Amino acid sequence: MPLSIKHKKLSTKDLLARSLYQLIEQKAFDKITVYHILEKAGVSRRTFYRYFSSKEKLMDYCLTCLIDEYYQEKKKFFNAKRSQEVFQVTLEFMYQKRRFLRSLIQSGHYDLFASKFNDNSVVIYKNFGLPWSLSGELNTRDLDYVSKGLIGAYINIIKFWLIKEEPDAPEIVAKDIALLFSSIPNYFQNYHPKD
């Protein structure tokens, strides 16, 4: 495919994704029609259906773009010196997206975001140098459980945080999360189940 056609295709898809993103910041996903998206993006129905078979497929692409944007924050993770700073990078990103994410939470569609994030949990776990990463090699099964468990807990905390009318500042929540995650190893080191 020639570069200009590929670029046009990408820019049209991105325009549609941005339009849906902006609409979701204003109202629930279920209240948005394809017509609303077309009007916001300034494209024809035919153009929309050339790229997406439904608004749900566009939503999936929109969430993929959001996760990709999150991956661009990777260099900030590497600059973090303490676990609190690592959490703060994510929380600042999520805080910037809070209107969109809050709308997903309120409309019952946050699970779409959580699922997309979960699908990428192994990549996040392996590549972001997270403070809770286990040392040594993990087999695929263990890596899948560990990454999904930890990322899932984190995503749930973000949901609890962003649903609030006035969410706390990211640095405050980062401190609390760092404290929570740092206490987990201490708990299990001292845990001795009764026989």
Rank of each mutant, 00 (worst) to 15 (best):
M1H: 14
P2K: 15
P2L: 14
P2N: 15
L3Q: 14
L3R: 14
L3E: 15
K6I: 13
H7Y: 13
H7W: 11
L10D: 14
L15P: 00
L15A: 06
A28Y: 03
A28F: 05
F29S: 00
K31N: 13
Y35Q: 11
I37W: 00
I37K: 00
A41Q: 03
V43T: 10
V43C: 08
R46W: 15
T47S: 09
F48P: 00
Y51H: 10
F52Q: 01
K57L: 11
C62A: 13
T64S: 10
C65I: 12
C65N: 14
L66F: 13
I67Y: 06
E69R: 07
E69M: 07
E69F: 04
E69C: 05
Y70V: 04
E73H: 08
K74D: 09
K74S: 11
K74Y: 11
F77N: 03
F77Y: 13
F78N: 09
S83D: 05
Q84E: 12
L91G: 00
E92L: 07
E92V: 08
K97A: 05
R98E: 11
L101Y: 02
L101T: 00
R102C: 07
L104Y: 03
I105W: 04
I105P: 02
S107E: 14
Y110I: 06
Y110W: 08
A114M: 10
S115E: 15
K116Y: 09
F117N: 01
N118F: 12
N120W: 07
N120H: 13
S121G: 01
V122Q: 04
I124G: 02
I124Q: 02
N127L: 11
F128Y: 15
F128A: 07
G129C: 08
G129K: 10
P131A: 04
W132Y: 14
L134D: 07
G136T: 09
L138Q: 14
L138G: 06
N139S: 12
D142R: 11
D144E: 15
D144G: 08
Y145P: 02
V146Q: 07
L150T: 13
L150I: 13
A153Q: 14
A153I: 15
Y154H: 06
Y154E: 05
I158R: 01
I158A: 01
I163F: 08
K164N: 13
E165L: 05
P167D: 03
P167S: 04
D168I: 05
E171Q: 09
D176K: 09
A178P: 01
F181L: 03
F181M: 04
I184M: 09
Q189C: 09
Q189Y: 12
N190K: 10
Y191D: 11
K194F: 14
K194I: 15
K194P: 06
D195I: 13
